[in-house]
């Protein structure tokens, strides 16, 4: 700025004040986020069990982790869950946004209905879905009571299908949010482009397929990033809905990390799994944040 030597004490304070004001938040972030990340990453190379211990074991925890059947199940479930969750949320979100964009009467009522699950805790929605899907008192029982005796819907108790109930509840909770993102994108499209296309005789279908959807690219990208990071962080929902079961049928990396670290006393392996989770999210988030922050310049 100006020559510091000529500044009075008060001016000098004014120069430093902005940085001083920012520094507590920055210090908190550096210690509690980046310091902690380094510490956990370090623990993943040690022989920590119940408590952190500092005996260096190299890559042993990672080797063990990837040979564990339990981890393999968690990662496979994650892949199934993430792919279905992201694809279905995007499909439903896009469809609802396009339909709502057709000058719908009552849009002001429908939109908040689609979006309200986002305001709920995953524990609440997990509890609700758990009992609705429970064959004993939920949907199956209700259908029986209504006279459809052969109706069967026991996915939540079925090892092969339980993961799909997690997908169902997660889609229920966040697809409205994806709808809102796409709707904002659609409403942001320049009207003249659409009018011109209509004058040229484009059908509605072509209008959306050829013009709107390609123009929604930024919304697709945001939806992908948000859904991916939500998928990897999914924890509460599984705890409330299935508790990771039946057996390990709905175990995810987040639940794996928790049980290995805090109940099985394998902190080294728990730390290794947390590090892998972080790396996965970083691989998605860092390029996204980088491009978002760069574009502003």
């Amino acid at each position: 700025m100006t020559i510091t030597a000529k500044l009075t004490m008060r001016d000098r304070l004014q120069v430093w004040l902005p940085k001083l004001v920012l520094s507590p938040s920055l210090a908190l972030t550096l210690v509690f986020v980046y310091g902690f990340i380094l510490f956990t990453a370090y623990l993943s190379f040690t022989d920590s069990r119940i408590l952190p211990s500092y005996g260096w074991v190299g890559w042993e925890n990672y080797v063990k982790l990837f040979s564990l059947r339990h981890w393999e199940v968690a990662v496979t479930n994650m892949a199934v869950f993430a792919v279905l969750y992201m694809a279905i949320c995007t499909a439903i979100g896009l469809m609802l946004a396009i339909l709502l964009d057709q000058k719908i009467r009552g849009e002001g009522i429908l939109r908040p209905i689609y979006l309200y699950p986002m305001a709920l805790s995953f524990i609440v929605s997990g509890t609700a879905w758990k009992w609705m899907l429970d064959p004993g008192i939920g949907l199956e029982n209700t259908m029986h009571a209504l006279g459809w005796v052969n109706f069967q819907f026991d996915w939540i108790k079925n090892r092969d299908f339980a993961i799909y109930t997690v997908v169902l509840a997660a889609v229920w909770q966040t697809s409205g949010f994806v709808m809102a993102m796409f709707l904002a994108g659609l409403r942001g499209i320049d009207n003249d482009i659409l009018k011109a296309a209509q004058i040229d005789g484009a059908s509605n279908w072509n209008l959306y397929r050829r013009i709107c959807i390609p123009l929604l690219r930024p919304a697709f990208l945001s939806a992908f990033v948000i859904l991916a990071h939500l998928a990897i962080k999914t924890y509460d929902l599984v705890i409330a809905l299935t508790g990771g079961g039946p057996g390990r049928a709905t175990e995810l990396p987040a639940t794996f990390m928790y049980s290995y670290t805090f109940t099985r006393n394998q902190m080294g392996i728990g730390a290794a799994s947390a590090t892998i989770m972080l790396m996965t999210i970083a691989a998605i988030m860092i390029p996204y944040l980088y491009s978002e922050l760069r574009e502003r310049r």
Binding site: L22, L26, F39, T40, L43, Y258, L278, I281
Partner: peptide, 22 residues
């Protein structure tokens, strides 16, 4: 901007990574 980026990334980390030291 770099400092802001550092703070922003903190929102997206899987919190499992900070449980033990916290």
């Amino acid at each position: 901007t770099v400092l802001f980026g550092l703070m922003l990334f903190a929102c997206f980390i899987p919190f499992q990574i900070v449980l033990i030291p916290m």
